[in-house]
């Protein structure tokens, strides 16, 4: 088994431009240090119709309410968290302002970048790479690359990343399970997972109806993203 860069078609070239936009890295970096509630806010804002920050501050009073970090019983670092939430909101609204056509690509790129960032915190020397194919002896290569890979010889990992639970479909599940099964044929324990920036329950509803094999595929949902970095 070996990893290989994906061939760049026209779509990939355009998408690479979005992936390289500093806004993607900024949003992903803020999300990597975010609470579950902040991540929910970012998802809502990036999906939103309105791009004025006051709307979103009112919608999330636990993040933007008066005096976080100052009242009795407030968590340590509350004032810092407020600043973090503000920065994340501003960045999320920049994504929303890219317009309907572009922002879905930006959102997808953000989830991929976030996944890579969190994985890199855990994997140490094993390289975390993007847009890679996995080649197996005697097996026809998949056309579509995997979004994020951890190219460890001892235990390689492949991830597909989705903005919403609706992105979970038979093609994605089959491709992940095929990689796991082919690796197993070569006596390699490959970890395969789908990362979805959406509520776990929504993802589970989607998976419950899926007929494609996915028993060996992990689900990393919005609430459990920190598992990518080795935290539970």
């Amino acid at each position: 088994m070996r990893f290989q860069d994906a061939a760049k078609d026209a779509r990939a070239v355009v998408y690479a431009g979005i992936q390289a936009d500093p806004l993607v890295a900024r949003v992903a970096g803020l999300l990597a240090g975010a609470t579950a509630a902040e991540r929910l806010m970012a998802r809502a804002a990036m999906n939103g119709e309105r791009t004025g920050p006051e709307v979103w501050r009112r919608m999330f009073p636990t993040l933007f309410g008066e005096g976080p970090g100052e009242g009795p019983g407030e968590r340590p670092g509350g004032a810092d968290r407020r600043l973090h939430a503000e920065a994340l909101l501003a960045a999320s609204l920049e994504v929303a302002e890219r317009g309907e056509a572009a922002r879905s690509s930006y959102r997808g790129a953000v989830v991929e970048e976030l996944t890579a960032l969190l994985l890199a915190r855990r994997t140490g020397q094993a390289p975390v790479k993007r847009e890679r194919r996995v080649l197996f002896d005697g097996v026809r290569a998949e056309i579509h690359p995997y979004d994020v890979t951890v190219e460890s010889e001892a235990r390689p990992e492949v991830y597909d990343c989705k903005w919403g639970a609706r992105g979970i479909n038979a093609d994605v599940l089959n491709q992940l399970d095929d990689a796991r099964a082919h690796a197993a044929d070569e006596e390699i324990a490959m970890h395969v997972a789908i990362v979805v920036f959406d509520a776990r329950r929504s993802c589970e509803l989607r998976l419950d109806r899926a007929t494609a094999e996915h028993a060996g595929t992990d689900l990393i949902a919005l609430e459990s993203l920190d598992e990518l970095a080795g935290r539970r």
Binding site: T35, R43, R75, G77, R81, S202, D226
Partner: peptide
């Protein structure tokens, strides 16, 4: 877009009426 919000809206409402999450992404708190 409505489908996306069918998944998001309930959690926004739950957060608004029930409180907060304090565990941070970087392990603090």
């Amino acid at each position: 877009k409505a489908i996306d919000w069918l998944s998001t809206f309930p959690h926004v409402v739950a957060l608004a009426v029930s409180g907060d999450v304090s565990a941070t992404g970087d392990g603090r708190g």
